[in-house]
């Protein structure tokens, strides 16, 4: 603990530069930390908060494996500095299930076999989640547009698109 930024403060000194304070909410939990200014948000989530669900596929914002929802919108956490998340609300794959029960979206991913190796799945789920939050009744084209930033080498995407469609339908029904 660095002592400067509160109780749950991590110190990670890679660069020898003074750590920067960071407060954010991750999956509903308030986090206070001091981080090396060069650390990415992805590495902060994984290496410091030990939330390993979010993956790194390329480190360059191309493949979407590291997709999380920050302040309601999807972002590639591999090309964001951790310090930029100061004040942000973050949702990762670990925050999708509530009270020990899988979300409808997660259930539909399983039901439609929308995953194989599973490595792209966390990022894919976050892109789908953000889509349904802003558009509860997306067309096939809109689903493809929302997911195109998430590469999957196993499934051929069609089962994923089907899972998002049926999750959207179930979520809409549940709201009725």
């Amino acid at each position: 603990m660095c002592g400067e930024h509160g109780n749950n403060c991590f110190v990670h000194v890679d660069s020898g530069l003074p750590p920067v304070g960071l407060k954010c909410v991750v999956n509903g939990e308030e986090i206070q930390a001091c981080v090396d200014p060069t650390m990415t948000l992805l590495n902060f989530l994984r290496n410091e908060l030990k939330l390993f669900g979010t993956k790194e596929g390329c480190g360059e914002g191309e493949c979407g494996a590291c997709t999380i929802i920050m302040n309601g919108e999807t972002v590639n956490s591999c090309i964001i500095l951790a310090v930029e998340a100061d004040g942000a609300e973050i949702l990762t794959v670990e925050g999708l299930a509530k009270d020990g029960e899988l979300s409808i979206l997660q259930q539909e991913f399983i039901k439609m076999d929308a995953l194989q190796c599973g490595f792209c799945t966390p990022g894919m789920l976050m892109s789908a989640r953000a889509l349904l939050d802003r558009n509860p009744n997306p067309s096939e084209e809109e689903i493809k547009e929302a997911l195109a930033g998430n590469f999957c080498r196993c499934t051929g995407y069609i089962p994923i698109i089907d899972a998002v469609k049926s999750a959207a339908k179930r979520e809409r029904e549940e709201l009725k």
């Binding site: 191309e62 997709t67 999807t74 972002v75 590639n76 892109s127 547009e145 195109a148 930033g149």
Partner: peptide, 8 residues
């Protein structure tokens, strides 16, 4: 670019 990249 992709949707999530456009958010940044």
């Amino acid at each position: 670019a992709s949707y999530q990249l456009r958010n940044r």
